[in-house]
Design a protein around this nucleic acid. Structure first.
Lengths: 124, 124
DNA sequence: TCACTGTTTCGACGTCTGTCGATGCCCGGA
DNA sequence: TCCGGGCATCGACAGACGTCGAAACAGTGA
């Protein structure tokens, strides 16, 4: 819980992350743990500012963008950084520092999992 | 802020509802208004209890269930009712009273729209 | 080395949200 | 008509969340 000040940016290891959690909601009742995990992902997108930030990253060529390119969403930069951190912690974005700038990119597998979870195709 | 219309709760007409809001997040930046609307839908699923309730309804045969069948999620009944109301207001569920019991059903179009919004297939 | 810029972290504040018990409304059965 | 059960609403409270300014950190260029 306490990432002190040792590393600049952990970037969230792919195998330690949030990935495998998403049976379709129609398949069976979610367990309490799965519900907790899924809710955290939806919560990450439950804020307009975060949604716009995510959209800006996702719609950028290559699915990645510099903070400086997306920071204009009507709130202060500390707030932007705060929201990007939330998206990172939810596993929806990854970050990478390249010289002066930090680039954020979508984590396709996690987003695809969310989409699949909402897939209602079950009975035909 | 901007919550003034309060939708009595009458089942939410299909054409007056929350439906058409969801371009894929990769297609273009969300406008502030669209972001607001989408965020509201994600927020409805951003709570573990709501997610379990929704899952219970969605996984029931026919995609509908009586409140009495799904109310066991570890919180009090007023709380269950409160969460179902939230899901209803977000357009994800519809409710219908049948005699003594109230049945909730998923609104497939709205859920499908959310799923489509998260679809990352775009650039290739 | 220093100065400058981009980004994150910190601390604080007001608001929103989930939760509960108590209460009220609606319906079916006696 | 009254009673009883299912569900919604009300009012209140603690905790979480979004927001900001100030400050710290990281890299570049001179």
């Amino acid at each position: 819980m306490s990432k002190q000040k040792t590393v600049g940016l952990p970037v969230l290891e792919p195998d330690d992350a949030v990935v495998p959690c998403c049976p379709p909601l129609t398949a069976a009742e979610l367990s309490a743990e799965d519900a907790e995990r899924m809710a955290a992902m939806f919560k990450a997108l439950s804020d307009p500012v975060r949604l716009r930030l995510f959209s800006k990253v996702a719609s950028h060529p290559g699915g990645e963008a510099c903070v400086c390119d997306i920071a204009d969403v009507g709130v202060s930069q500390p707030t932007v950084s705060h929201h990007l951190k939330k998206l990172r912690e939810a596993g929806l974005l990854t970050s990478e520092r390249r010289g002066t700038w930090v680039y954020y990119a979508v984590a396709p597998s996690v987003v695809a999992a969310m989409s699949a979870t909402l897939d209602l195709r079950t009975a035909t």
